[in-house]
Amino acid sequence: MKKAQSDAYVRKFSFRAFEGVRKGRVYRLWATSWQWWTHQWERSRAIKVLLGFIIFILVITNLFLLSFKDFMLYEPGTRIPLINPTTGEPMTTNNLLEQNLLELVRGLVTFQTSFSSQTPGGGEMGMSIGGLSIFILILIALVGSGLIADDVSNLTTEIYYSKLERHEYILGKFGAFFLFGNLVIVLPMVLEFFLLVAGLGEISLIQAFPVLIQTIIITEIIVLTFASIVLGFSALTSRRLYAGLAAFMFLFVLNMIIPSLAFSGQGEVGFQILFDVLTLLLLTSFIITGTTEVIYYPHGETSEISYIIDLANGSGIESWMVIGALAMYILLGFAIVVYQVYRRHAR
């Protein structure tokens, strides 16, 4: 009786031998990254809402820019071109594209401080619609915090490590974050470039091309930095909430406090600035666009008070320090992940 029951329970006809060929490690890496990322996407409505906000802001920016294009290019009521204050040449549509796109990109990593540069594309025409940074910070905390912490709390590491190598696990996690970053941070900015090119008209694509490359490099560095930091925190705890809060606080609070400390001295900019990841990213974006002289307005651009951070004058904060400090942060986060996965998880 019992036997019959249990046999009926086992439906043997559904089992099939696998006759195909197993795919290689690269496929598996891709499959895990994709699964981990899409799961974060599917599990959280907040991510979709925030992405909606980001798209909304980009659309508003476009509408604003396209409606007021003429005001930014010509003297009011005439067709006499405005003079670009930094180059002394007449403003072109290319200038407009460059300064606005780069401003949007920089808005990914700054909200508190107001920076501008003196190279082409700087100038006073930049409009401030508010950075996307706050949304981005929340997004990365939401997406990245659980990537490793959840595996530890759910003990799914046991299943992953019975199928994957440790380094594949780590690469898969970074891959998942990169998929997110590229789809949510890099891709919108690249699309924005093409929208602006199409919308503004009269653009020389060849001249504009470096702006596209710069946009991609800057956003990729932003993604890499965020990946390292948020995964580092995620590997330190088994609670996604703690990891997410810690990553958010680390980026947000330091950015609230450190610049005001660094800029409190007379004229000189303090080295404390090297501890603030968001400012480092911002300065790096200037370095990538070829700017070494960054003007900082602690009380907004209209105020009289301003500091100049010269990254290439041989004293104070230099470019290599900025890049070096940023690289340290990236390596530190990565090292924490590697250490935890190889040591702590190896129990």
Binding site: R16, F18, G20, R22, K23, G24, Y27, R28, A31, T32, Q35, I159, Y160, K163, L164
Partner: peptide, 16 residues
Amino acid sequence: FCARMNGLSVSESKQR
């Protein structure tokens, strides 16, 4: 997902 980690294709892993 587990099947894909062991190298099965997307359609095969769903089926299995």
